[in-house]
């Protein structure tokens, strides 16, 4: 009798292990090629997202009080600093408007209706962050009903933060650019140098120094520290011209052939409340 129970327990454990590993393998393989998660999974996630809103509201209310007090203490210094910037901003804004108008007129003349820089934006707030060191994921409050699609670029008010990996009806998951996931889709980026532009890919992320690594660089133009990096719009997922960050270091890659560039991300990946999903229009 004892023997029988031992076997039964062992079988349960083994079956659970096998089912578990099959599920892991399955979800890893379909993660990058499916268009949306299955209906049942979507339903579960939507229900969970709904409850999460109720729970996260008081937490964010308390958090907001804390940050408001913090902001209040810095207000005076910040005000002085900002006053200096405001004057120059007004003139920049006016010239920007003029250039935008000119751009639209020129596009009309060329009969260019849609270019790489055009995108529709969907604004969402962040519901939760995966409580895990290995998945750098956020859950945001908009899904396929609002027009979010898989693989679209996501930005904060400062710059690029990540990519949509899973879309449910009313919420979706974002993989941050700080991910170390081997199979994550990479962003095509351009370094704006003084004598042109250099194309490449974001290939990895160094979590110790908080730097993005850009590789696969196509030319040897003179890049220098402080050059700005934007998305290039190549590869079809992200629109062109989303600010990624600034160059901090340029060196040869591990084989000494091409350059490897370290980029300081513009967006603060640990302080995100409102994010924008950029949907390419062409």
């Amino acid at each position: 009798m004892q023997r029988f129970f031992f076997n039964k327990r062992l079988i349960i454990v083994l079956v659970t292990l096998i089912i578990g590993f099959v599920l892991v393998a399955l979800s890893i393989t379909v993660r990058n090629n499916r268009s949306t998660p299955p209906i049942i999974q979507q339903f579960g996630n939507d229900a969970a997202g709904l409850v999460d809103r109720v729970v996260s509201y008081p937490v964010s209310a308390v958090g907001n009080v804390g940050s408001s007090v913090g902001n209040l203490l810095n207000t005076y210094q910040e005000n002085q600093k900002l006053k200096k910037q405001v004057d120059s901003l007004a003139s920049e804004k006016v010239s920007n408007q003029a250039i935008k108008k000119e751009n639209i007129a020129l596009k009309k003349q060329l009969k260019l209706n849609k270019t790489l820089t055009d995108y529709n934006s969907v604004t969402a707030y962040v519901l939760a962050r995966t409580p895990s060191s290995w998945q750098n994921q956020l859950i945001i409050s908009k899904g396929s009903l609002a027009g979010v699609k898989k693989n679209e670029a996501v930005l904060s008010d400062k710059g690029l933060i990540g990519r949509v990996t899973e879309v449910n009806k009313t919420n979706s998951k974002i993989e941050l650019i700080s991910t170390e996931n081997d199979s994550a889709n990479r962003f095509a980026t351009t370094i704006l140098t003084s004598d042109g532009s250099v194309n490449g890919l974001i290939t990895s992320y160094n979590s110790n120094t908080n730097r993005l690594i850009m590789g696969q660089i196509d030319s040897q133009k003179t890049m220098k520290k402080g050059d700005r990096v934007i998305t290039s719009g190549m590869g079809g997922n992200s629109p062109q011209g989303i600010y990624v960050g600034t160059v901090t270091k340029i060196e040869k890659d591990d084989y000494g052939l091409a350059s490897k560039v370290e980029i300081k991300p513009a967006a603060d990946l640990t302080n995100l409340n409102i994010v924008t999903v950029a949907e390419r229009t062409n």
């Binding site: 969970a48 409850v51 999460d52 729970v55 996260s56 937490v59 964010s60 958090g63 962040v126 519901l127 939760a128 962050r129 995966t130 409580p131 895990s132 060191s133 750098n136 956020l138 859950i139 979590s207 110790n208 120094t209 908080n210 990946l269 640990t270 302080n271 995100l272």
Partner: peptide, 22 residues
């Protein structure tokens, strides 16, 4: 759900360069 919300609100102290808290 508190796990996720706290991780989001205090991401600055939970997930730094040198350490991360689950």
């Amino acid at each position: 759900f508190l796990d996720g919300s706290l991780s989001e609100k205090f991401a600055g102290s939970f997930f730094t360069n040198t350490m991360s808290i689950e």
